[in-house]
Design a protein around this nucleic acid. Sequence first.
DNA 1: GCTCACTTGTGAAAAGCTTCACAATATTAG
DNA 2: CTAATATTGTGAAGCTTTTCACAAGTGAGC
Lengths: 211, 211
Amino acid sequence: MSRRVSESTIRRLSYYLRALEALEGSGAATVSSEELAERGGTTAAQVRKDLSQFGSFGKRGLGYAVKELECTLRRILGLHVRWRVALVGAGRIGSALFEYPNFAQRGFDCVAVLDADPAKVGSRWGPILIRPVSELERTVRELEADLVILAVPPEAAQDLAERAVGAGARGILNFAAVQLRVPRGIPVKDVNLVFEMEALSFAITQADSHA
Amino acid sequence: MSRRVSESTIRRLSYYLRALEALEGSGAATVSSEELAERGGTTAAQVRKDLSQFGSFGKRGLGYAVKELECTLRRILGLHVRWRVALVGAGRIGSALFEYPNFAQRGFDCVAVLDADPAKVGSRWGPILIRPVSELERTVRELEADLVILAVPPEAAQDLAERAVGAGARGILNFAAVQLRVPRGIPVKDVNLVFEMEALSFAITQADSHA
DNA sequence: GCTCACTTGTGAAAAGCTTCACAATATTAG
DNA sequence: CTAATATTGTGAAGCTTTTCACAAGTGAGC
């Protein structure tokens, strides 16, 4: 029950959680692996295998209790606690993130915003005062930020990542198009729109050349 | 040379391309699989395997010619042509995307913006007039959009995806937290910040419980 | 020309992930 | 109570991806 769990499994757990939330809204009390699979874009066997890595949550013949499984998944994903997030980079992406309502709803509280641009430093986003990036370490330490979001140019990302981790950050969401090197044990997730667009471009081009 | 190429390989090709661009800027003429691996966050063997799926681009003993490989990768990824993109959803995310300068730089031209909010319809973003989503089909058809970006609420996404594909869209970048069902052969890429944050949350929680 | 150091391309082995198939178990109906 | 039906949990099989290891090719120095 405590082997290494694959990235793909985790990603699917997030989908299952969204599906369960929707099901709860629609009043369903139980759900089968088959229905979860349909909503999560996978197969029933996969759903059962995924869940079985963490325990045995269903009832044979019946399926899974929606509310209970939802709760279990939240706990597995570590969403039963709130996470403190420091956002580095108050540009377009940073601002979109900051205003994204689902963010706080899902347990992620933005406790600080930092930027390198002196013109932005000192202004306010709602209750939050924008700080200079030079105060990154102090901010992470004093506000006990768990997670750091880097929405900064690629050339700045590696340095900021190292400093954030040095000051106690435990995970990084990276919007910069570089592969960050961080100490073992610090998870990094990359989000990169250009990469996704390039993957679409490849898939379409490929399809054409085979037609 | 024309087997199915894995998602992971494509994702890494994008990293290699970024690395090559950086190398070209710094004046290097050739690069070894080892150096590409370091910059792309993988291993030398993986780099060689990835590239070998498309041909034989290196010189033994020497490595790869930076400029040439860059060009080859662009062609493999289908980036030698420009892509026409329609953006559906003129909210925070849509606006951040629209203003993202790298987007156009990398060959993706935003040819239309649509929104469901009558208050936004008719206003301008630079040269682009915001259209009502009711005109999605007409817009995709007349402006010959290849790719559609859905930056809309989850409940609207499935319907819009179907309509976009019906009107000729060939690929979808989906920001909504639902699994879209589309006809076979239409690639869909999902971008979801909450999923990435949840993966971080899981990784950290997991690490804790094993400490 | 010969040797040396270097680096690719690739078959084979290893590791990892997904699908299959079925015993086990739960509920409902008669 | 028995039969019929539904659905889970899981070992084993099948498939995919990654890593390994090395023959083959390349240029530089002498």
